[in-house]
C-alpha cells in the first residue's frame, strides 16, 4: 500500500500480515449424557495417565460428558473386590461398572452375585489385559452367569472372536474397529443383544452403516477416557449423517435405556 506522507514523498507501507487463525475448531460437539467406556486406575505396563478418579471426572466435565459407566483397572488387573468397591464409592457422573477377572472364573461367579446384590447394572470384561482367549471356558461361563444375574456385559476384545462365547447376552463391544465392522453387522443381525461402542468406528461411513443395517439403537458413544481422546468419537458423531434424535441416542440415550438409567 502506498500512502502520501505529509510534506514529503509517498512511502510504501508493507501490508499487515494477517493474524494467524487456528482453523481447528468444533463448536458443534454434542453433549454426551452417558459414556459407556471410562476407566479409573493405571496400567503397570505402559506410560499414560494415573487414572486418578478426580482427574478423570474433571476430564469428563471438560469434554461435555455428564454421565459415565466407569470401571476400575485396580479391579481388572489386581484385586476385583477392592477395585469395584472403589468405583462404587465414586459419585457425581459415575455409574459404577464391575470389573471381572476372567483368569479366576470361580471368583468371578462370587463377584457377579455380590455386584448384582449391590445394584450394579453392568460388568466389564478385560480379556486382552488379562491374557484370556475367547475359547477359554471362563469367558462363556462368566458371560452366562452375568446374563442370568441381569447384568449387561461391556467387553474389550476382537469382536470377530468374542462374539461366539457372548451369544445370547446383552453386550456392548468396546473395541469394534471399523476394519471389522462387516463381521459385527452380520453377527449382530442374529444377536439382538449385541451393541457396539463408537470409539473405533471412525471411518467415513461406519456409524451410518450400523444405523442403516441394524438401527441406531445399537450404537453407544464410548471414549475410553482418560486413555483415548474423547473428542474424536464426539466429533465423528457431530459430523455424522445421523439426525438429531439419532445423535442424542448414541450420545447417551441408548446407554441409559440399556443400563436402566433414568434420563
Amino acid at each position: 500500500m502506498t500512502v502520501p506522507a505529509a510534506g514529503g514523498p509517498a512511502v510504501t507501507v508493507p501490508a499487515a500480515e494477517p493474524c494467524p487463525v487456528n482453523p481447528f475448531v468444533a463448536t458443534d460437539l454434542p453433549p454426551v449424557t452417558l459414556d459407556v467406556d471410562v476407566l479409573v486406575g493405571r496400567y503397570a505396563d505402559r506410560p499414560g495417565p494415573s487414572g486418578d478418579p478426580d482427574a478423570v471426572v474433571a476430564l469428563l466435565a471438560g469434554n461435555g460428558i455428564t454421565g459415565a459407566a466407569v470401571a476400575s483397572l485396580r479391579a481388572a488387573l489386581f484385586d476385583v473386590t477392592s477395585g469395584n468397591d472403589e468405583v462404587a464409592a465414586l459419585g457425581g457422573p459415575v455409574l459404577p461398572v464391575g470389573a471381572l477377572d476372567l483368569r479366576d472364573p470361580l471368583g468371578a461367579e462370587r463377584e457377579i452375585v455380590r455386584l448384582a446384590a449391590r445394584g450394579f447394572r453392568a460388568v466389564r470384561l478385560f480379556p486382552d489385559e488379562q491374557g484370556v482367549q475367547p475359547d477359554f471356558p471362563s469367558v462363556r461361563h462368566v458371560a452366562r452367569r452375568a446374563t442370568e444375574a441381569g447384568l449387561v456385559i461391556l467387553t474389550g476384545g476382537d469382536v470377530r472372536r468374542y462374539w461366539r462365547p457372548l451369544r445370547g447376552a446383552t453386550v456392548v463391544f468396546l473395541d469394534t474397529h471399523f476394519y471389522h465392522l462387516g463381521d459385527f453387522v452380520v453377527v449382530a443381525r442374529d444377536e439382538p443383544g449385541f451393541h457396539t461402542s463408537t470409539r473405533l468406528l471412525n471411518s467415513p461411513d461406519a456409524l451410518e452403516t450400523v444405523a442403516a443395517q441394524l438401527g441406531v439403537g445399537r450404537l453407544l458413544y464410548g471414549s475410553r477416557t482418560p486413555w483415548q481422546e474423547p473428542v474424536v468419537p464426539r466429533l465423528r458423531l457431530a459430523r455424522s449423517g445421523l439426525d438429531a434424535a439419532g445423535v442424542a441416542a448414541v450420545a447417551g440415550g441408548n446407554a441409559r435405556r440399556l443400563l436402566g438409567v433414568a434420563a
Partner: peptide, 16 residues
C-alpha cells in the same frame, strides 16, 4: 474419517 486426526489436533489446543 478426518475426525481422528482433526480431533487429535483439536485436543492439542495449539497456539494459532
Amino acid at each position: 474419517d478426518p475426525a481422528a486426526a482433526y480431533g487429535a489436533v483439536l485436543a492439542a489446543d495449539l497456539d494459532p
